[in-house]
């Protein structure tokens, strides 16, 4: 079964209906285990104390913020190159989720920053890049909202997503460069070069839990979007029933 078999939205709806309860269950278990491990099993940091536990939310959220953009970029390729009917539904639904995870990672980052740096916000290279990513997500969502026709909006957003995907590494590089230029000595690193397994394991479980959460929300949002588009089509048809639209043709030679 290739990816094109999911091209039919009806088949997609049936399949996701089957898969979703299992995904929800898995996600709940992963969160239960992950949260237990990060609160009770993982050791506290000898310097930061319990605040280090913010990491178990912050790092997976940041990871998802980036994964979500990759999924949007792949979906955009799907829209523009393979013209897959579900691709732009997928991209459109991923954007708000990505924005939410980016927001969580910004908030947890600044909450973590308060005890570490003594202030909620530092123009640290990572935080700054994530902030730029956040603005890009919001811009894409604004583009989707302002365009009336979902197909056109999808294509426009796909182009912007891909340009953004090309640009993100450049932005990351320039922000890093800018950061080292302005504060050469005091570069804070949130995670050391080596991570102890006691920390790594809960972190990995939390990352899995967040990824599952993403897929659950993403699939649910896609189902909603498909239904929303069907409603829109039915309304358009209701409008055109009153006034004939569309055409079939008869060709007749003139006398």
């Amino acid at each position: 079964m290739g990816i094109l078999d999911f091209a039919n939205p009806t088949r997609f709806m049936k399949l996701t209906q089957l898969v979703l309860p299992w995904l929800v269950g898995l996600c709940a278990i992963a969160f239960a285990v992950g949260l237990y491990m990060s609160f009770f099993v993982a050791p506290e940091d000898y310097q930061q104390g319990d605040t280090v536990r913010i990491m178990y939310i912050h790092v997976p959220a940041a990871w998802l913020a980036m994964m979500c953009y990759s999924i949007m970029a792949i979906s955009s390729l799907g829209t523009l190159v393979w013209k897959h009917p579900l691709a732009d539904v997928s991209a459109k639904c991923a954007a708000p989720i990505g924005a939410a995870f980016t927001f969580i990672s910004l908030v947890t980052g600044s909450l973590w920053g308060k005890p570490m740096w003594g202030t909620y916000w530092v123009w640290d290279a990572r935080l700054t890049s994530v902030l730029v990513l956040f603005i890009m997500y919001l811009g894409l969502m604004a583009l989707w909202r302002t365009m009336e026709d979902p197909i056109k909006a999808g294509k426009a957003a796909a182009i912007l997503t891909l340009v953004g995907a090309l640009n993100l590494p450049i932005i990351k590089f320039s922000v890093d460069w800018w950061n080292t230029l302005h504060q050469p000595a005091s570069v804070m690193r949130m995670d050391g070069p080596t991570i102890h397994p006691d920390i790594l394991l809960p972190l990995a479980v939390m990352a899995v839990a967040f990824t599952l959460l993403f897929f659950v929300i993403h699939l649910m949002a896609m189902r909603n979007e498909i239904l929303r588009r069907r409603v829109r089509t039915l309304r358009l048809r209701a409008a055109s029933a009153a006034r004939p639209a569309g055409g079939s043709a008869t060709l007749q030679p003139a006398e």
């Binding site: 894409l140 302002t146 182009i159 320039s174 922000v175």
Partner: peptide
Amino acid sequence: LTVTLRRGGLLLAVLVIPLTIP
């Protein structure tokens, strides 16, 4: 991207500014 929008100027700036940061 904003050519079809009647008041696209502000949205244009929002979309483009992140890309111009480098």
